[in-house]
Design a protein around this nucleic acid. Structure first.
Length: 425
RNA sequence: GUGGCUGUAGCUCAGGUGGUUAGAGCGACGGGUUGUGAUCCCGUAGGCCGGGGGUUCGAGUCCCCUCAGUCACCCCA
């Protein structure tokens, strides 16, 4: 097909991006709608931040992270500003918090595209959409529980059954510093196996823990665990989160190797994984606490927690699980016009204004084609404007599923359809 | 960034060891039914066989390069 270079080639969506068309987009609007409704019930407001920020806002994610060191979609604009397309949702939200200083705790949710410059593969795109939520300005462990429940219950509501909750604690600042040194010493003991990647281990000892390389699995399994170095306060917090989750019916699996990809995480981190996704990319969504980020951005102390979940991956899981999402929006009526005057325009207008879902064909096509179009549209009724009957103020209504036909006065057609029952959405 | 696989019609795919006018199904459009869809029958349109170079009398087919897609690694949603 298109090669991208020849003069006759057709344009394609840029690498790693894709178009979402009906009927797939019907599932998108359904998923987003359900998330918005759940977030509203939990007391979260919608936040909309720019799709790009000053590069430095995202650089706070940590310069040893892949997201910053090699995946940033950055550019210089005409005013010589260095900007970057948002790679994730938290940094921009915290920037907005620091800039506007809303009353804490600030509870917000978002739906937004994220961008990462990396090679696409199954379930991974250069532009992907995330639903997410953040609570900024509270360190109460009950907030952690609420946040995880917002996410977990959402999966349940859209029909995902195979997701499991995995949690860990990164500890507080002292815990982490202590653990870093212990871990680094351990990696040095195994420098022969790590080879050149020892540099990665030095830059960020925690990153090695979640590697999927088979030849490292043994040393990773035997590595010292952060759990054994938690301060008393951090351990108590984690216990409280676990107890809270169990109290509302969750069965969290503790994974000491769960460290997440961004430097700002502290304390509680979590992921929902699905066995319906391939092992390398089985995370549907995840998040954690970032208690220092507000201060690192020049804001007030504001402990916070949030998560993001990818819509594309939700759809992969939904497809793999054959989860039932709402079918494509159906039409109540499809209008067939043989009069070729204003009558069809007016009828369609009236039906739509009365609240019915209505479509029609255009371009004075043959009756056969119009009825065929009505059939394909999935409408419940076909409504035909035909000369003989219309002369007597009557239109022909046909139930497309049965073929049963009725003559209905033009003046009462709207109420006739409404009383027969509109199509359930 | 590294590696594997794949590029033929709008979609899904056929096209032994090179051989001349490149095929099917589905879809689209038109007709059989000039006032009736989902069945059936007939027909029409739609292809620089991803692009470039090479080998050859001859390349969709073999070789090289390139582009694109896809999968995997790194890592992440």
């Amino acid at each position: 097909m298109a090669s991208g270079t020849g003069a006759r080639d057709v344009f394609r969506a840029p690498k790693g991006t894709r178009d979402v068309l009906p009927p797939e987009s019907d599932r998108w609007i359904d998923i987003v709608g359900r998330f918005a409704e759940r977030a509203r019930r939990f007391g979260y407001g919608l936040v909309i931040t720019p799709i790009f920020e000053h590069y430095e806002v995202f650089a706070r994610l940590g310069d040893t992270t892949d997201v910053v060191s090699k995946e940033m979609y950055d550019f210089v604009d005409k005013g010589d500003r260095r900007l970057a397309l948002r790679p994730e949702g938290t940094a921009g939200t915290v920037r907005a918090f620091v800039e506007h200083r809303p009353i804490a705790p600030w509870k917000v949710w978002y739906i937004a595209p994220n961008f990462r410059y990396e090679r696409p593969q199954a379930g991974r795109y250069r532009q992907h959409f995330q639903l997410g939520a953040e609570v900024i300005g509270s360190d109460d462990p009950d907030v952690d529980v609420e946040m995880i429940d917002l996410q977990g219950g959402f999966y349940r509501e859209i029909g995902l059954t195979q997701s499991r909750l995995v949690v860990n604690s990164m500890g507080d600042a002292e815990t982490r510093e202590r653990y870093r040194h212990v871990l680094l010493a351990y990696w040095h003991d195994h420098a022969d196996l790590l080879g050149d990647d020892i540099a990665r281990a030095v830059a960020n000892p925690l990153r090695i823990l979640d590697s999927k390389r088979p030849d490292w699995q043994t040393i990773i399994a035997e590595a010292p665990q952060l759990r054994d170095h938690l301060s008393d306060a951090a351990a108590a917090t984690f216990d409280r989160v676990l107890a809270g989750l169990r109290a509302i019916g969750y069965d969290p699996e503790i994974d000491p190797r769960l460290v997440r990809g961004l430097d700002y995480y502290t304390s509680t981190v979590f992921e929902f994984r699905s066995s319906a996704l391939s092992a390398g990319q089985d995370t549907i969504g995840g998040g954690g606490r970032y208690d220092r980020l507000s201060e690192e951005m020049g804001g007030p102390p504001a402990p916070a927690i949030g998560f993001g979940t990818g819509i594309e991956r939700i759809l992969i899981v939904a497809g793999a699980e054959a989860a039932v999402t709402r079918a494509r929006p159906r039409l109540d009526a499809f209008v067939i016009d043989t009069l070729d005057n204003d009558a069809a325009l007016l009828l369609v207008h009236e039906l739509r204004e009365s609240g019915l879902a209505v479509d029609r064909s255009f371009g004075s096509r043959s009756l056969k084609k119009q009825w065929s179009a009505a059939d394909k549209s999935g409408a419940t009724y076909g409504v035909m404007l035909a000369p003989r009957e219309y002369e007597h103020g009557v239109v022909i209504v046909k139930e497309l599923s049965t073929g049963e036909q009725h003559e209905v006065p033009r003046a009462t057609i709207t109420t006739w359809i409404q009383q027969r029952g509109v199509t359930p959405q």
